[in-house]
Amino acid sequence: MKLEIKNVSYRYTSKGRQILKDFSLSMENTERVGLTAPSGYGKTTLCQLLSGYLKPNQGEILLDGRPLDSYQGYCPVQMVWQQPEFAVNPRLPLGEAIKEGDEIEERVIRGLGIEPDWFGRFPTELSGGELQRFSLARALGKRTRFLIADEISTMLDLITQSQIWHFLVEEVEKRQIGLIAVSHNPELIDRVCTRKIDLRLLDEKNR
């Protein structure tokens, strides 16, 4: 299965800055692609476009040859956000957040180190790292084919970061889920990904 971005351009408002211009990228579901670029280069925008949260002004995003927005119901491309505290409903206990996902397996929950005690707690009662484990579990539903990880481990300590990435790499390999990892840490990308892309270089080529 292939995830493709074809000649996508995007700006938030009609007079706003051109964030992506004629951007193209293609990846297989067996790949793990690492994206790097400085702040403000549109990494998060790209992630949102890829997972269907935003629609491109021009160009198209294809999953398996079909436009992404033609998929009804559960989106096979799932995104995990940089700041988990904004990605969960503050008024519901975290057990409910897990139910928003697509039949999350017990194995995933255990693999991410989620403690049974956390299910009854509210988002303000958990730390960023603990919340991020829930966001990850929620995104790893049964029908997920691509996972977009936007700076998911910036708030984690080194041991947890290593634990979570080891689990994720094993999980996506086993289930043949394509992974896009956005990170500022080049050493981490080297450890995790099979291919590296620097948005800055792509940008220069386009100009």
Binding site: T36, P38, S39, E151, T154, P186
Partner: peptide
Amino acid sequence: EPTPGLDLAV
């Protein structure tokens, strides 16, 4: 936690 989400240079 002054730096999460900043690129390495910043």
